[in-house]
Simulated scan of single mutants.
Amino acid sequence: MAAATGWAVYILLTQFVGHRGDGLEGLAFTIPVAALTALVGVPPATGHLTPVVLLAALGLALLLPVFPFALEMLALRRMSHTAFGTFMALEPAIGAVLGFLVLGQRMAPIQLLGVALVAFAGGGRAAWWRSCADQQADAVVADPTVATG
Rank of each mutant, 00 (worst) to 15 (best):
V40I: 04
A83K: 01
L36M: 14
T46P: 03
T30P: 06
P109L: 04
M1R: 11
P92E: 04
Q136K: 13
R20Y: 01
V66T: 06
R77Y: 08
V141T: 06
P144L: 12
Q105G: 14
Q135W: 11
G149V: 03
V53D: 07
V40S: 09
A61T: 07
M107G: 13
R130H: 13
G21L: 08
A139I: 06
G104T: 06
G114Q: 11
F120N: 10
P109H: 09
W7D: 04
L90F: 09
M107P: 12
L74T: 14
L63Q: 00
H48P: 04
R78V: 09
D134V: 15
L13K: 03
F120S: 15
F29C: 08
G18T: 01
D22C: 06
T82E: 07
T86L: 04
P43M: 04
D138Y: 04
P32C: 11
G149F: 02
P43D: 15
G18Y: 07
W128L: 15
L112Q: 12
A2T: 10
V17K: 01
I94R: 03
V17D: 02
A38V: 03
L27N: 05
L113N: 13
A4V: 14
W129M: 13
F29T: 14
L27P: 10
A89P: 01
W129C: 10
L39P: 04
A96F: 05
G99V: 08
F84W: 03
R78C: 05
F16G: 08
A61I: 00
V118A: 11
R78I: 00
L49D: 07
L27Y: 00
I31G: 08
A45H: 08
L113R: 13
V9H: 08
T148M: 12
T14E: 06
C132D: 10
A116M: 13
L13N: 02
V140C: 00
I11P: 04
Q15C: 09
P51T: 01
M107I: 09
A8Y: 05
G6N: 02
L98V: 01
L74A: 15
E25A: 15
T14V: 14
G99S: 03
P144K: 14
Y10E: 11
W7L: 11
G59S: 05
